[in-house]
């Protein structure tokens, strides 16, 4: 776990805080309109990259409790702490709503943070750099975790999105188009993982994996969320070669295949990180920590309409192959013995 670090905006083109506010007021902003200062408590790697390489940006999307910011150097997301840390998030203690600023409002980076329009001043100087936590686990704890997780998910997985591929419901329930598209892709991905885990040698994933890109409902389409979960677990399992293989196949399709917000989360997942909530859940499964699964599942289910479930489904698909592969290897060893 990384120790707390101080994030400062470097660069010669930065102005100081006070100078910035003076400059804004000098350009005609009402000094009577208060600038609200928010202190960031954590910041993720993608967010550091986005603001570190930029002097200027804009507000790309506005929600009650979060803002997506587009800088020259990439995108990041300003969120209230209750939404949790992630590689793309800058978490702030938020006394009110974020939607007091408007879409396309200018964002200017300054010495110790940035200013959004004439409304919010975000100070990142004392923010902790968030990195995904890692737990000790074994095949035994993983199998225990999966065994405890599956009954919970069978009961609660939503019909929308792709999680019903991993936790199927009655065959009598009608399947959505995205589910019909994704089912054979997920089956072929599971087969690919089985092969590469057993043989050890990397091979490219099936080309049909690109059918998941941009597939399904939600601000971040379900197929993208599924890929995020899958990539995170591959990284946690140390199979960076397989992450690179997935990257090689899907990257050419990302620009046209999905939206900028989803691309941001996929890029973070290709670097091995996603939301704090997903990591907490995956780590609990890996460590077989069944007591916390139900409460963490509640948090997962609160992410988007079904995004949390879709990322968890992608993660669990890989975790199951990991568990199964190990058991078959062990069985083969016993037979040989």
């Amino acid at each position: 776990m990384a120790s707390p670090q101080v994030v400062t905006g470097a660069g010669s083109n930065r102005r100081t805080d006070a100078a910035f506010v003076r400059a804004r007021n000098g350009r005609g902003f009402s000094s009577a309109q208060a600038v609200q200062t928010l202190s960031a408590v954590s910041i993720g790697a993608q967010a550091i990259r986005a603001i570190g390489a930029s002097s200027r940006g804009r507000v790309a999307a506005v929600f009650n409790r979060s803002l997506y910011l587009e800088f020259d150097g990439g995108w990041c997301c300003l969120v209230g702490t209750e939404l949790g840390a992630s590689p793309v998030n800058i978490c702030v203690l938020l006394p009110g709503r974020m939607d007091i600023v408007t879409r396309n409002a200018a964002v200017d980076t300054i010495d110790q943070g940035f200013v959004i329009g004439s409304r919010l001043h975000v100070v990142t100087a004392s923010a902790r750099v968030w990195t995904a936590p890692i737990v000790e686990w074994s095949e035994e704890t993983l199998i225990r975790g999966l065994a405890a997780l599956d009954p919970l998910c069978l009961d609660h997985a939503p019909n929308a999105g792709l999680s019903r591929i991993v936790w199927p419901r009655s065959l009598a329930d009608p399947a959505s188009f995205e589910l019909c598209v994704a089912m054979p892709v997920v089956a072929s991905l599971a087969g690919w993982l089985q092969r590469v885990f057993e043989r050890g040698a990397p091979e490219l994933p099936p080309g049909s994996i690109t059918k998941l890109v941009g597939l399904g409902p939600g601000l971040t389409p379900s197929g993208d969320d599924f890929l995020v979960g899958m990539l995170v677990v591959l990284s946690l399992a140390g199979r960076f070669d397989l992450v690179a293989a997935v990257d090689q196949v899907i990257r050419p399709t990302l620009e046209e295949g999905t939206g900028p917000i989803s691309r941001l989360h996929l890029a973070a997942a290709l670097d091995g990180e996603s939301s704090e909530r997903l990591h907490a859940m995956v780590n609990a499964v890996l460590a077989g920590d069944h007591d916390v699964l139900a409460s963490r599942l509640v948090l997962i289910s609160q992410v988007g309409h079904c995004s949390g479930w879709d990322t968890l489904a992608g993660a669990v698909m890989v975790l199951r192959v990991l568990a199964r592969t190990h058991r078959s290897v062990m069985a083969a060893g016993r037979d040989a013995g």
């Binding site: 188009f177 995205e178 598209v181 059918k211 998941l212 890109v213 941009g214 597939l215 399904g216 409902p217 939600g218 601000l219 389409p221 197929g223 046209e256 295949g257 999905t258 939206g259 989803s262």
Partner: peptide, 17 residues
Amino acid sequence: AALMMGTPANQEILENS
């Protein structure tokens, strides 16, 4: 009725629907 991000995959879903 559907409101979806306009990705190629979603356009295919809308077409099929």
